Computed example of a mutant assay.
Amino acid sequence: MTNANEKRLLRVLDHIHDNPAGDLSLDALSDIAAMSRFHWHRVFRAMTGETMAQAVRRIRMHRASYYLVMTDRPIATIATEIGMPNLASFNRTFTDHFAMSPSAFRKRGELRPYVRNQIQEITLMHPVTIRTEPPLHLAAVPHKGPYFEISRAFQKLSAVMASRDLFRKSGRMVGVFYDDPQSVPAPELRSHAAFELTGKADLSDPLEAVSLPGGRHAVLTYKGPYAGLPAAYDQLYGAWLPGSGEEPAETPSFEVYLNSPMDTAPEDLVTELHLPLK
Rank of each mutant, 00 (worst) to 15 (best):
D165G: 07
P146E: 12
A194W: 02
A232G: 01
A186T: 04
P135A: 15
L203N: 03
G224Q: 05
V174S: 06
G228M: 01
L241M: 11
F148D: 03
S211F: 00
K107G: 06
E133L: 15
P134W: 12
L220Q: 04
P206Q: 09
L203C: 12
T123K: 11
D165F: 06
M173A: 15
V115G: 01
V184M: 10
I122K: 10
R112T: 05
Y233C: 04
N117H: 06
G245W: 02
V176R: 04
A201Q: 03
E121Y: 03
K107I: 01
Q120T: 02
L111S: 06
G215R: 08
Y147H: 13
G245K: 05
V160A: 05
A218P: 01
P242S: 11
A153M: 06
Y222G: 01
P213Y: 08
A239N: 04
L138P: 00
A231R: 03
R216Q: 15
L207N: 05
Y178E: 09
M173K: 15
L166R: 03
P242L: 11
A227H: 04
A193H: 05
G245F: 02
Y147K: 05
R131I: 09
L157D: 00
G145C: 09
V176K: 00
D180L: 07
A232S: 02
F154Y: 15
S183F: 08
D205M: 07
E208D: 00
M125A: 13
V160N: 01
H217C: 08
D234G: 15
L212W: 05
G238H: 08
A162F: 05
G145L: 10
P187Q: 13
V176A: 07
A218E: 06
P213G: 08
L241V: 01
Y178N: 08
E196T: 12
